[in-house]
């Protein structure tokens, strides 16, 4: 149901979205907020036909094809959490504000709560579960542990995916860039101090391979 989603590199935003830029660029896609990227898709595709009842779709998650039955109104986040037992992404605000459900779709950082599952068909989806093989830790996850950038840990997977998307674009960030680049995510326990150090360390680790 969707064609190519590649965005030319020079059109990629310089930092990850913030809550405000998300709202500014929000388009209506099936009644929920979506990121600018998906809003463009929706416009390109014209109006989506009204459907009801469950449909079977195939999602491309962490390089594996997964079939799942969803109603058209089901968000990508709920499809993953409720139907595929992929619970790394968390549902917190459920309205594209807090970033606990951050994942990467077609190379772009998105809030899983603000993307419809049916809109994600045909697009590569990367979640926290796909970041490192079982038993191993991605350098970002490792850096979060090293700098104690987590307490209750509920926001952590979202922050780590946001960091992944951010460092993919911005491999050698300054602290100011980190502040802005991760401002689309919220933590309640207050772990930002460790996070800043963790993101700096992860950037170095990734660069050194």
């Amino acid at each position: 149901m969707s064609s190519s989603n590649e965005i030319p590199k020079d059109q990629l935003p310089k930092s990850a979205f913030s809550r405000r830029s998300l709202l500014q660029s929000a388009g209506v896609s099936g009644g929920v907020l979506s990121t600018g990227l998906l809003a463009e898709d929706a416009q390109a595709q014209g109006a989506v036909a009204v459907m009801s009842g469950e449909v079977e779709i195939t999602l491309d998650i962490n390089g594996k094809k997964r079939n799942v039955k969803v109603e058209p109104r089901v968000t990508l986040l709920d499809a993953l959490r409720n139907r595929l037992d992929m619970t790394g992404a968390k549902r917190v605000c459920d309205r594209g504000t807090c970033g606990a459900c951050t994942m990467i779709v077609s190379g772009k950082v998105v809030y899983g709560c603000s993307v419809l599952a049916v809109d994600a068909v045909g697009k590569p989806i990367q979640t926290i579960e796909g970041l490192a093989p079982e038993g191993q830790l991605h350098p970002i996850s490792k850096a979060f542990v090293n700098h104690d950038a987590q307490q209750c840990g509920y926001c952590t997977p979202g922050f780590i995916m946001a960091t992944k998307g951010f460092l993919d674009r911005n491999p050698a960030p300054t602290v100011e860039q980190i502040d802005k680049g991760l401002s689309g995510n919220l933590c309640r326990c207050g772990t930002y101090m460790g996070m800043k150090a963790a993101v700096l360390e992860a950037a170095k680790e990734i660069k050194n391979g």
Binding site: G88, T127, I128, S141, K142, V145, Q150, G153, P157, I160
Partner: peptide, 9 residues
């Protein structure tokens, strides 16, 4: 439990 939390597991 840092690794469990930061891996989403």
């Amino acid at each position: 439990d840092g690794p469990m939390k930061s891996s989403g597991r």
